[in-house]
């Protein structure tokens, strides 16, 4: 039997998991839905974003939630020339570690700078939320970050 007589089909394997997020990440996601960026106070007064239930250095409980941003600084980044369907933006963008104003750790998210030549580590960016009606309390409530001064489009 010639090779071409073998069948071929597209399949999708899918599990509809949901997970409970706990009080701290829950507060962070609730903040996103409200269009606010929240961190948590860790040991020694540092602010951890995204927040964790435990301080990553001491293992102790973290404290109060602290509002951070909406601006921040790009610490490092990698350009995505060919976005995949699951990526936050359909057009080329940067994955970047962004240290938000008031935070001591960096958050990973997309930066829509227009091109790799229009982004550098140390640049200031600001958050761009989805419209309030579309926000559900998930990381994708942040559409992307954009260079401070507005979107390049």
């Amino acid at each position: 039997m010639p090779e071409s007589e073998a069948l071929h089909a597209s399949h999708r394997l899918e599990y509809p998991y949901s997970r409970s997020v706990g009080p701290v990440i829950g507060a962070f996601l609730t903040g996103l839905r409200e269009g606010r960026l929240l961190g948590v106070r860790g040991a020694g007064g540092s602010v951890i974003v995204p927040p964790t239930e435990y301080d990553p250095t001491t293992g102790g409980d973290t404290g109060e939630m602290v509002e951070v941003g909406p601006g921040g600084v790009v610490e490092s980044w990698a350009w995505v020339s060919h976005p995949l369907p699951k990526h936050p933006l359909p057009s080329p963008f940067a994955w970047a570690l962004i240290r938000l104003d008031g935070a001591d750790t960096a958050l990973l998210h997309a930066v829509d700078s227009g091109g790799p030549d229009q982004l550098a580590s140390g640049d200031r960016v600001t958050v761009r939320f989805r419209p309030a009606a579309e926000r559900i309390g998930a990381m994708a409530d942040i559409e992307s970050f954009v260079p401070q001064g507005g979107a390049p489009r």
Binding site: S10, R12, E14, Y15, P16, Y17, G26, A138
Partner: peptide, 12 residues
């Protein structure tokens, strides 16, 4: 927010 939908999907 108490839960997060995290569907796992594999297209092949």
């Amino acid at each position: 927010v108490t839960t997060l939908a995290t569907p796992i999907r594999l297209d092949f």
